[in-house]
Design a protein around this nucleic acid. Structure first.
Lengths: 143, 143
DNA sequence: ATACAAGTTAAAGTTAACTTTAAGTCAAGG
DNA sequence: CCTTGACTTAAAGTTAACTTTAACTTGTAT
């Protein structure tokens, strides 16, 4: 089974131009051409899938490319790739942790506004939310 | 207690220029000035904290600003703010869910490379990872 | 045969979120 | 008095990740 760039783009929910861009960045190795046109095969979805979850964790394209390049080199890079995967796994764990903390803040705000709406004014809950600068402010991530 | 822009920047782990930028975007309402210089007070950390977790969930600055603007209008916007918070809470839940799926992929890859390294070659596990295009590829998020 | 839809490239344009630069103000120390 | 360091603004520059454009080719339908 083969697929046109449009078909793959639709499956992946991106624009064809995005796939061309990924290809030009070296993220889609080994995609066949027929008359200059990209023809996607089942094996290409292996990479598309990898691309998919690597992008979801906000891995920069340059880093994804280096992983792809390692994979292209074959068995001699197994350890390096393993190390990269482990590192990214830790990053995902950290991201999940951060988001869970944020979730708590939103749940708190949900309660806060529920109470405020009940009372018709924020004054009723404002005192509860006063924060000490040092204790409650954790770091804003650089990006 | 008051703080200079540099002190706050250090606490928040951002550049002073970033705080000026946030201020210029309307994200830091009510910061005092003395001789034209920003002087942060404890009450300002309430907003910095909100800014902090809103940025962590990748809420765009424009959307944060509209929340800040609603808050500035007072009690008449309580319901609107509640709705925004609820919406964002759902978004965070979705993000956590996505990341958990990604985590599984990385854990799988961890196992994959562990086996491959043991065997000295990927061939041993390659067949396990063949994917059907439709079943295993879920959508790449637009951004 | 011819028009049209879908593909191609290279290069320029876009957007968000900062960051840097240039030119200036101000308070404190020597 | 003068220098230094930390602040100020407005405006220009940066970066990543696309997206659009322009000019062109190709396969399919009428």
């Amino acid at each position: 089974m083969t697929y046109s760039i449009k078909e793959v783009a639709d499956m992946m929910n991106v624009e064809p131009s995005t796939l061309r861009y990924y290809d030009s960045m070296g993220l889609l190795p080994g995609v066949k051409r027929v008359n200059g046109r990209r023809v996607f095969e089942d094996k290409d979805f292996k990479w598309l899938r990898v691309l998919n979850y690597m992008k979801k964790i906000n891995m920069p394209i340059d880093k994804i490319r280096s992983y792809v390049e390692l994979a292209e080199k074959g068995d001699s890079t197994l350890q390096e790739r393993f190390d990269m995967i482990l590192e990214q796994k830790e990053i995902v764990l950290g991201q999940i942790d951060e988001l869970k903390k944020c979730l708590k803040e939103f749940e708190y705000k949900e309660w806060y506004y529920t109470e405020a709406i009940k009372a018709g004014t924020e004054k009723v809950v404002e005192n509860v939310t006063s924060c000490s600068p040092t204790l409650e402010v954790d770091t804003i991530p650089k990006n």
